[in-house]
Simulated scan of single mutants.
Amino acid sequence: MRIVLLAFLSFCFSITSCKSDKVSEVIIETQEQLEARTISQKDIESIRYDDFGLSPDSQKAANDWQKFQELNTQIEVLKKGDLAYFSGDPLIIKTLMQELRTEIPKTLQTNEISARITALDTKTQKLNSLLRLANINKEEKINVIKEFLTTISNLNLQINKKFEFENNDVIKPE
């Protein structure tokens, strides 16, 4: 009897200790699902905001500002639907924003422009963090891109205002 019981327990133990292979499901993403997540150039072009460019005077002042030119280049790439730079390493984004602030030309060093750069830094880091997350829906990503583009446009507007005010020769009361 003991031998039968021992054989039965050994048999049960061997069955329970067998490794069971789980069948893994392969999830195939359809083209429609991929397009529903991917932000395209059309999506970015459909964003409505006031896009201010730099005036000729502002452009001259910002010509030697290398980090500003680099940022504008990346923004043009972003507008074409390529989000790689802004969804990349956050350290690169932080470094760009720090260098943008430290390399600002003397003619553009005002409190108003500095405040716009601070806002741009915040929106750039927000854009980077949201684009790096996989579970954020397309609408939220488009909204954060809109906030970023609006912020860079506001920086351009503030730079233009500085030179416009200087060109108006406003007489200040004594």
Rank of each mutant, 00 (worst) to 15 (best):
L34N: 10
K138E: 05
T73W: 07
P56G: 07
Q74C: 01
S24Q: 15
T38V: 12
N156T: 08
L157C: 01
D43M: 01
I3G: 10
T16N: 10
A36P: 11
E70L: 11
I44F: 04
L155E: 00
V144W: 03
I15Q: 08
S24V: 13
S14N: 12
S114Y: 12
V23L: 12
D51E: 15
S24E: 15
I75H: 07
D21A: 12
I145E: 05
F13C: 13
F13K: 00
E45H: 14
D169S: 13
K106N: 09
V144K: 11
I44V: 03
I152W: 09
N72R: 13
N72A: 06
D121G: 06
T102S: 15
K162A: 06
N63Q: 14
E139W: 00
L78M: 10
T30F: 07
I3E: 15
K123V: 00
A36N: 13
I75D: 01
K161G: 02
S40C: 04
N111L: 15
S58P: 04
R48P: 00
K161N: 13
S20W: 10
Y49F: 15
D43L: 04
E112Q: 13
L130S: 09
G81R: 01
S20Q: 14
R101M: 14
K42E: 11
T124V: 00
T95N: 12
S20I: 14
K94G: 06
I142V: 12
N72I: 03
T110E: 10
S10C: 14
I39L: 05
T151A: 10
I142H: 04
N143F: 04
A62Y: 02
I104W: 06
G88Q: 04
T151W: 03
I47P: 06
I15A: 13
A84W: 08
I136D: 03
L83C: 07
I39E: 03
P173R: 09
E32S: 13
E112R: 09
